[in-house]
Design a protein around this nucleic acid. Structure first.
Lengths: 154, 154
DNA sequence: GTGAATGCAAAACCTTTGCAACTGG
DNA sequence: CCAGTTGCAAAGGTTTTGCATTCAC
């Protein structure tokens, strides 16, 4: 049950390297062209692509990149807190480079994912926990109709 | 992307059948021994078993039941609002017959799932949504250490 | 009687892994 | 130099599907 997700231990960021403008270099993870590519794919179009979609986009500029590497890179970026992983019901995980406090709205109709900014999702929202529970992290997901699909319903 | 999960359309509950004591019969879904069995497995031990676990427990009393049928039955029960499906990160879905307002606490250490009662998870928690979004459903998941594992850490 | 549910095995889907070759620091 | 990363193909775990049979209503 205790499943280790990556094959290598994540080394926490060491400050003092890279530039302020370059979170990837600054993060302390080993710099590779593939990681750069994956990260830039996420930054350049801020939708919520699946690993497969990231792979396809990365491949168009770096044909030799492999899907397994994209999975590795995404995992590294998530562990380095540069990227968030969004787990919908039973579908492929999605990834976004928005590290601000926000939750995700999943449209039941078109399956699109939207960032909803705001501090909903902080531990205040959890309410009273029974004695002994230590809360580390809280996630909220919203489901319904996005503006476009809601309008079509009229 | 628009994936239909069950092979048959769910028929909404028709009132006037079954007894008050028997939510399954009263739900309007076609009654089958397998559905009864799956539902009773969930009711009898109120942990949060995976489909596989439900299958094993059901099989001990109904040896001919198949895993695919368990998946079908669980899906039917979820659609009939008799059972909740709990989707953890990337692991097998878990199921619980607690239909009260509650959220789920996932222990990072032992991977156990706990019901946290309370109205956290009502739409009030969602905060302000941008114009046009129609909220239908909201889910909150909590992550951290359960009392047992927290105690062991000391 | 008939449409829906079952059981089985095979397929689908997303993700991880084993391993040899390579590379960033 | 060498631990960590890559690419590939194969395996893994979970869930769904096709189809003939059986069943609930």
């Amino acid at each position: 049950m205790t499943k280790v997700k990556s094959r290598t231990v994540f080394v926490p960021p060491r400050r003092g390297r890279g530039t302020v403008d370059d979170p990837l270099s600054a993060s302390g993870v080993r710099f590779t062209p593939q990681r750069r590519q994956v990260y830039e794919v996420l930054l350049s179009k801020r939708d919520h692509p699946t690993a497969e979609e990231v792979y396809l986009r990365a491949k168009s500029r770096m044909p030799e990149i492999s899907l397994a590497t994209v999975y590795n890179c995404l995992d590294t970026l998530v562990r380095a807190s540069l990227v968030k992983q969004v787990n919908l019901n039973r579908t492929a995980a999605r990834f976004c480079p928005n590290m601000n406090h926000h939750s995700h709205f999943h449209c039941d109709q078109c399956a699109e994912v939207f960032d909803i900014d705001g501090d909903a999702g902080t531990r205040r929202t959890a309410g009273r926990l029974p004695r002994g529970f230590k809360l580390r992290h809280l996630e909220m997901s919203l489901h319904g109709l996005c503006p476009t699909c809601a309008a079509k319903r009229q």
